[in-house]
Design a protein around this nucleic acid. Structure first.
Lengths: 137, 137
DNA sequence: CTTGACCCTGTAGTTGCTACAGGGTGCATA
DNA sequence: TATGCACCCTGTAGCAACTACAGGGTCAAG
């Protein structure tokens, strides 16, 4: 498989594949006589693992740890569980923050009744930080 | 006010203040004899506006537009409303994505009953993209 | 007169890619 | 044989929004 085919097979940008190789997430593949990268099924599987992990929001370093574990099936999986659980916590925190944000934005926008910027509630709200009750960290 | 005081007054990193000045979000302040930046109340207000906007997740370019509007109170505020509404939509989309993410993560983690990586559901789930119903873009 | 806190400029690093520039390869077609 | 085109290669620079130095200057206190 050439890089373009792997790209299409996994929905990954070609530059991204080369980037993953550069940072050591994907092993260097064999080369053809013309110096083209030549991938096998194992590469496709590994790249799919990386992409799925990234879609779930794991950082590159987390993906590296997860891959490392996948490469060593004789180890305990508590590390994987720990990484995933911590990530879940972070996602939940982020959701909470965004919900707070959404509420504040809705409130600000709801008060805008058009007209001149001089009287705009959006602009006013942004300038005046005390408008929110002050306890959002 | 020297930069350190402005930093404390607004909870903004000193480097960030200089960065904002460099990219033109904050005007260049007067300088003391010793070439120190010297800020006034207007700078503090403007920086607070920027920080609050950034906390709400507006991009630098959006903040630039909002500031521009705040600087011209004779204009209509429909632009501010448009920017804020678009941003609200984006925040809502992001919340939706994260909720989907959280659910998938919970499902994956919930199935992990410890043991060896060889049998780990987390690792397995990451490798096998078809485990999710397949319709998340 | 030296110590320490503060300030200055300029540049490089962060994350996770993405986008070139400037070339080489490989195959079909004229 | 030439040539066009799609594809591939390396290496470097760019994005957002900061953050972190290095290597120096300023200023007040002791």
């Amino acid at each position: 498989m050439k890089i373009g085919e792997l790209s299409r097979a996994t929905g990954t940008n070609i530059e991204t594949i080369r980037y993953y190789e550069r940072i050591g997430l994907l092993p260097e593949p064999a080369r053809t006589a013309g110096n083209y990268r030549s991938y096998g099924e194992a590469h496709r599987t590994r790249l799919a693992f990386v992409r799925h992990s990234r879609e779930l929001g794991f950082t590159i370093e987390e993906v590296r740890s997860l891959l490392d574990l996948a490469d060593h099936p004789e180890r305990e999986c508590s590390e994987a569980d720990r990484i995933a659980t911590r990530h879940l916590t972070q996602v939940e925190e982020k959701i909470g923050q965004l919900v707070t944000l959404r509420d504040e934005l809705s409130r600000i926008i709801g008060r805008c009744r058009g007209g001149l910027a001089a009287d705009c509630r959006v602009i006013e709200a942004l300038g005046d930080h005390t408008m929110c009750n002050g306890d959002h960290e």
